[in-house]
């Protein structure tokens, strides 16, 4: 189909294997935001960079078939609204906006720290998708040719 797009076969093969590891690492950083350095912003940027890796190696048409940009757009808006919804639920359960109403759990456990984990996940999705969407629209413009 789009065989001649993107970079060479070597780059494509390496990308095919490595991109999942990068995505896994980004997800790890997001999920362990309350235990180790990192968190939603850093993990989200790693996820966006993994998708950018695919875009650079395979070219734009492949990514358009592989991922639906409309879906990413919806995911981004959904993540932003989920942040507010979690905050409003805090108002219902604890009495103030963004209150920590979930169980605190045990220190150093993965499922601990109440609302910090869901908020980290929401921020990770938001940052990852929105940065990638901007890159995708920039790649449409062919900025290297000045169009």
């Amino acid at each position: 189909m789009h065989k001649h797009e993107g970079m060479t076969l070597i780059v494509k093969t390496v990308t095919r294997i490595s991109v999942w590891m990068i995505l896994l690492y980004g997800t790890y950083i997001v999920f362990h935001g309350h235990l180790s350095p990192g968190g939603g912003f850093a993990g989200g940027v790693i996820i966006a960079l993994a998708l950018l890796n695919v875009l650079l190696a395979y070219g734009r048409n492949f990514v358009t078939e592989w991922l639906s940009i409309k879906f990413l757009h919806g995911l981004e808006s959904l993540a932003a609204s989920f942040f507010v919804i979690i905050g409003i639920l805090g108002m219902v359960y604890v009495g103030y906006f963004l209150g920590n109403y979930l169980s605190k759990g045990e220190l150093f456990n993965l499922l601990s720290a109440g609302t910090i984990l869901p908020l980290n996940i929401v921020i990770g999705i938001k940052v990852g998708t929105s940065l990638f969407i901007v890159i995708w629209f920039l790649s449409e413009l062919k900025i290297d040719k000045g169009e």
Binding site: H34, L35, P37, N100, E106, S112, G114, I116, L119, N120
Partner: peptide, 16 residues
Amino acid sequence: TGAANLVSSVILDYRA
């Protein structure tokens, strides 16, 4: 907050 990473506990709980 129950978070081992203090930065997380500040940016997502105290200063959310």
